[in-house]
């Protein structure tokens, strides 16, 4: 047996045995979801199942053993186990490429693309395009709450609809030039939006933010610390810009300034690295919390399983 196969087999057998033991032989078990039936609507005819906890279930059972308001949810429990297995499937890539990871990866791609499409359709195409062109029809179909001036027809919206159809023409095997029109619109508006925003918000504003007094005077007199900080801020920006400036050879004064600019940029990148590490750890922490808390019930930091 190959070493990898042995490791995989061992991990699976030990993992399955541990899960079986945890689920069957411990008092509370693990990996179960509970829901609370809540009546909604004006007459309370509809029932909505909202997330509840094992702790709330225990408390409700203690008060009334026959209660059905809070109950075990099989579909959500299955979902929880699937979510845990998906998490493990992705993490398994850390050991090496394998079919479980590949399947999970394929599902991410498919689900994400479809999710975005559905969101785009129901939150933008229906209310912002179709409801503008044919408000009556959309009101009678999916948006009965659309009333008042918001329900006024605006036929100018036919233009983005035509551009949208032309954009989708890109999927057709012939007539690729048709999609260039909407693409040109997207590129043009992006350029128009960004040109001003970057010029105003970044270029001009950052120059303005750099114009600070080099000698800071307060009511107590000369403030050495603030003056030094401002000096670093102004000279530092100039030095970094000198490094980015390639029209002159980096020699003499320009060379010294560029060298100082590199040092400041290195400190900047070091800070960015530190912050990036911090961010990534938090992302892995939430997944391990999910496995330990929601699925395995090994920890209960917010008391969801306390009656």
């Amino acid at each position: 047996m190959k070493r990898d196969t042995l490791v995989w087999t061992l991990l699976m057998v030990v993992g399955a045995a541990a899960l079986f033991g945890r689920a069957v032989f411990t008092t509370d078990g693990m990996g179960r979801e509970y829901v609370e039936a809540v009546p909604v609507g004006a007459d309370g005819q509809q029932i909505q199942f909202q997330a509840s906890t094992y702790g709330a279930f225990l408390a409700a059972q203690a008060a009334d053993p026959n209660q059905t308001d809070i109950q075990f949810s099989l579909p959500r429990s299955i979902g929880l186990w699937i979510a845990a297995l998906f998490t493990l499937a992705i993490l398994s890539f850390l050991y090496g490429d394998n079919p479980f990871y590949r399947i999970a990866e394929a599902i991410v791609v498919g689900v994400s693309a479809a999710y975005w499409m559905a969101v785009g359709f129901w939150t933008v195409i229906v209310p912002n395009l179709l409801a503008k062109i044919a408000p009556g029809m959309i009101q009678g179909w999916a948006m009965p709450g659309l009333t008042g001036p918001e329900a006024d027809q605006n036929l100018w919206y036919v233009v983005p609809m035509i551009l949208g159809v032309m954009l989708l023409w890109r999927l057709a095997p012939t007539g690729a030039w048709i999609s260039r029109w909407p693409l040109a619109f997207i590129i043009g508006t992006t350029a128009g939006l960004r040109m001003i925003a970057f010029l105003h918000g970044d270029f001009l504003a950052q120059i303005r933010n750099s114009i600070v007094p080099l000698v800071v005077l307060t009511q107590e007199g000369f403030d050495l610390s603030a003056s030094l900080t401002n000096l670093i801020a102004v000279v530092g920006v100039l030095c970094c810009l000198a490094y980015f400036f390639f029209s002159f050879e980096h020699k003499g004064m320009v060379g010294h300034a560029a060298q100082a600019g590199i040092w400041i940029l290195m400190i900047t990148f070091g800070a960015a690295f530190g912050y990036t590490v911090m961010g990534r750890i938090a992302l892995v922490a939430i997944r391990l919390e999910f496995l330990l808390d929601d699925w395995l019930w090994l920890i209960d930091p917010i008391g969801r399983r306390v009656a």
Partner: peptide
């Protein structure tokens, strides 16, 4: 606004391409 609507249609294009 037209740009924003085309951005939503681009989601469909992305899905179709996939």
């Amino acid at each position: 606004v037209w740009f924003d609507i085309l951005a939503a249609i681009a989601f469909i294009l992305g899905g179709g391409n996939l």
